[in-house]
């Protein structure tokens, strides 16, 4: 579905991604794990069109991605950014409607709003509340729901578990699997390596802008290098 070949991204003098190559296959949950500064967010922002690559190619369903972020969403790739970044000055409902900005099917949008309230029942009580007044976990639900409202083929999640209570983290990962079961391919970046690897089909470990190892989630959980560096397991 998505194939990234030899991708290079720079912020001025800083070389953030050094020739990354990776594949995301249709219908899977793919995790990119790594420490702070490994380049996870840079990768996500480049895929969504907020950063432009210095070299390499990104193919989505066989063709190159457009340059502008709003056109990339039109192709079916949606990023839920790090720290959720909801519109605090809009209500929960308006935030969700912004997610459906490119869609014209009013009936479909109304039906999807209902689906989102079913997925996250607590949101139903918060429809008219300003998004800035929600708790961190509730904000993350709204952020994911806002992303889903665009009906993406590929959902990019940047640190969905950041700053959440442990129970909420579990709930979030369970929800991501549910979303995937409905046919949305998911690429997520996570610092929370153990849980991300545990739930992902495929995974990549990023270190200082390079892919260190890749494999299925379970394989990487067993990989001694990964266990030592990211899971804090001593041998």
């Amino acid at each position: 579905m998505l194939s990234i070949r030899n991708l290079n991204v720079k912020y001025g003098q800083i070389h953030a991604l050094h020739g990354i190559s990776l594949e995301v296959e249709t219908g899977r949950v793919v995790a990119v794990v790594g420490a702070n500064g490994a380049g996870k967010t840079t990768l996500m922002m480049t895929l969504a069109g907020l950063l432009s690559p210095a070299g390499g190619e990104i193919l989505f369903e066989g063709t190159a991605l457009p340059k502008e972020a709003y056109k990339i969403l039109g192709r079916g790739i949606c990023l839920v950014p790090e720290r959720r970044r909801l519109y605090a000055n809009l209500t929960v409902r308006e935030n969700l409607l912004m997610g459906a900005y490119l869609r014209k099917d009013k009936a479909g949008i109304a039906a999807d709003l209902e689906r989102m309230y079913d997925l996250f029942p607590i949101m139903r009580e918060r429809i008219k509340q300003y998004a800035g007044t929600l708790s961190g976990g509730e904000q993350q639900m709204v952020a994911i729901a806002r992303g889903l409202m665009s009906r993406p083929k590929l959902l990019l999640l940047d640190e969905p578990s950041l700053g959440l209570a442990p129970l909420m983290v579990q709930f979030m990962f369970k929800t991501i699997r549910e979303i995937n079961a409905e046919g949305v391919t998911v690429l997520l970046a996570e610092q929370n390596a153990f849980q991300a690897l545990d739930m992902a089909d495929d995974a990549f470990v990023l270190e200082t802008g390079r892919v260190l190892v890749s494999g299925s989630g379970k394989e990487l959980l067993e990989n001694p290098l990964v266990r030592k560096a990211y899971l804090g397991v001593k041998h």
Partner: peptide
């Protein structure tokens, strides 16, 4: 109104 709060996320939501 969304753009007045966060222009970057607004472009992620498909706004030109």
């Amino acid at each position: 109104r969304a753009a007045s709060y966060d222009i970057e996320v607004c472009s992620l939501n498909g706004v030109n």
